[in-house]
Write a protein that binds this DNA or RNA. Structure first.
Lengths: 331, 331
DNA sequence: TTTCCACATGGAAACGTTTCCACGGATGTG
DNA sequence: CACATCCGTGGAAACGTTTCCATGTGGAAA
């Protein structure tokens, strides 16, 4: 593999000059410039990233650490973040914590060792010593989707209260009293915020406050099934279901079908997060639209600001709502 | 940020000894060992990855370049690949080509510059100069899911012919004659293989050979809708649809609903790729199960073998089939 | 013509590791 | 007791860049 030294030799210039041409950092004569470029092309020169990173003390790499890449919300977020990072000249190192604190900690160590320029993180519950020390070390850090108690970093998150209010209004318009709520983990900020907003708002929207109708999962599909089964097995018979994320809503539908068979279709469904296929089922599934792409984009932009030393504020992203109730309603 | 030099000084040993302790490469006395470890802990020493990579000429990083991370097939593959890589001591650098050749080429350059130890690639159509030269440079390379003409690298892919045969058998059992086929791109090997197997096998399974029933997309959801709309607008009226991947199948269903409304439910659907929610729709969507996780796992294992210089052979992964036709059939 | 400045260049230091080499002391064998 | 061996260590080179500093050459200004 050719080094810059080989390129310099072939071009008949010094190593320093070759570097100046190749990195474009400083003025060079048109003559040496063209000779170096030609030599580099002939030798198929590719700069050695680690060497460059070592010397410049930056890598132009951003870390993106997500809880679950198979969750469409996060894969969409990752996609948008990557596009934006690319636009800003960064490469993204994507890692998947699998909703597991140890794995998150392990990746944080890896990132620290790789000397990434900044980290975009959708954290696990409660932080970790690794996260503390990474932040304490001054690594530019931006949180997305979820907050960490006691960690002072900019956060880009959904306006959960707004989204829940939209869902509640929709439930009320449908005349529902017995609504099953499949919430998220009590240890994750989005779980808490959505649950609290729901519990606080339900009475005002004419919804039963019977807590037998409420259960929770961990934002993964199977847990939504389990939670809904627990609810149904308490003997209640909801006329609508509200899931705190897209995957758990899907899981809850599976539970409904298991217990109620074809009658499951009579139960109206609303989800926090809109998935691709929610319009394909009949009747359609209404949803709070949680703009993952926007969060990813803004997150990377904010991270770039932090890296550049510009001030950055936390931000709530507004939700919209898509009503897929068949004309005529249910009630 | 503390360096190994600081650690050595604090422990009262030479730089070389500190390195030997920290990297565990060579014997050290218990005494210096404990002193170095203590010093490292006190200083919160984190090894500088780029420096290490520069010196050792390896990074312990694998590249994973996928066409579309939002496609559940690939996000599942990525997840499994990452787990396996982690198990083998590698970090994964994940990148998303977005079904775009230029972006793929750009990432290949980035990977080359980062000096990754190996690349797991689900390529775009027809390769690229960047891919050629990367492979020519001796970078360990394993392909997943898709082949590249003229590129001699191990390939782990689905047994597309088998999967199509399973779908054909199912269609025949359902008594279908007019079957719409939404194929993949003619430039991608999986697209070609599935289409060829279907076209070659349909007559023997009692399926119409009218090519008005056949169209193609690009493996993304919207393209499935478009293809299906084209088919329907030719005036044919299929009793079943076969989609060449999960997303396009979903897209085709959207088209059916647009054109046929509630009667769309009478059209039976079978998909190459099983998605999470195919059992939730009624009637259920039958599917060829394409084991993305297995491909990801085996791909990384194969890549590790290539890196270690062990011989590696291409491999076809068998498909299974899940029949979700309601008892009693349709015919 | 002389002085000065700008600018392109060559050489060398520096980034933080790993690893080679040589040395010294302790251990074991004859 | 003498010699060979082994093992842990210190010192230094090397990895491939970027960047600082000094030098020389050109042209512009006086």
């Amino acid at each position: 593999m050719a080094t810059i030294k080989d390129v310099a030799a072939r071009a008949g210039v010094s190593l320093g000059t070759a570097s100046r041409v190749l990195s474009g950092s400083s003025q060079t004569s048109p003559d040496s410039r063209s000779r170096v470029l030609a030599a580099a092309a002939e030798l198929q020169y590719v700069a050695n990233g680690p060497a460059r990173a070592l010397r410049r003390a930056r890598t132009d790499v951003l870390g993106l650490l997500l809880p679950d890449i198979r969750n469409p919300f996060f894969s969409e977020l990752a996609h948008a973040a990557e596009q934006e990072a690319r636009r800003l000249g960064y490469t993204v190192l994507l890692a998947n914590a699998d909703e597991d604190r140890d794995q998150e900690a392990a990746y944080l160590r890896t990132f620290a060792s790789q000397r990434i320029d900044g980290l975009l993180l959708a954290p696990q519950q409660g932080g970790s010593p690794e996260l503390e020390s990474l932040h304490a070390s001054g690594l530019p850090l931006v949180l997305v989707d979820r907050a960490v108690r006691g960690l002072d970093a900019p956060l880009l998150s959904t306006d959960n209260a707004q989204g829940v209010a939209q869902a509640l209004a929709w439930l009320q318009a449908g005349g529902h009293r017995d609504v099953a709520f499949v919430g998220g983990p009590a240890a994750i900020s989005t779980g808490v915020e959505r649950r609290d907003a729901y519990l606080a708002g339900r009475a005002a929207h004419g919804i039963s406050t019977d807590d037998a109708l409420v259960d929770a999962g961990d934002f993964q599909l199977g847990s939504g099934t389990d939670a809904m089964l627990r609810i149904l097995d308490r003997g209640v018979r909801p006329t609508a279901v509200f899931g705190a994320d897209g995957l758990m809503t899907a899981g809850a539908m599976r539970a409904l079908r298991q217990r109620l068979g074809d009658e499951a279709r009579a139960v109206e469904v609303v989800s926090f997060d809109d998935l691709d296929w929610f319009d394909l089922r009949s009747p359609g599934i209404s949803a709070v639209v949680n703009d993952a792409a926007e969060i990813g984009r803004l997150g990377v932009a904010a991270l770039a600001d932090v890296i550049a030393g510009r001030p950055v504020a936390s931000q709530r992203i507004a939700t919209t709502f898509v009503d897929r109730r068949p004309a005529g309603g249910t009630a």
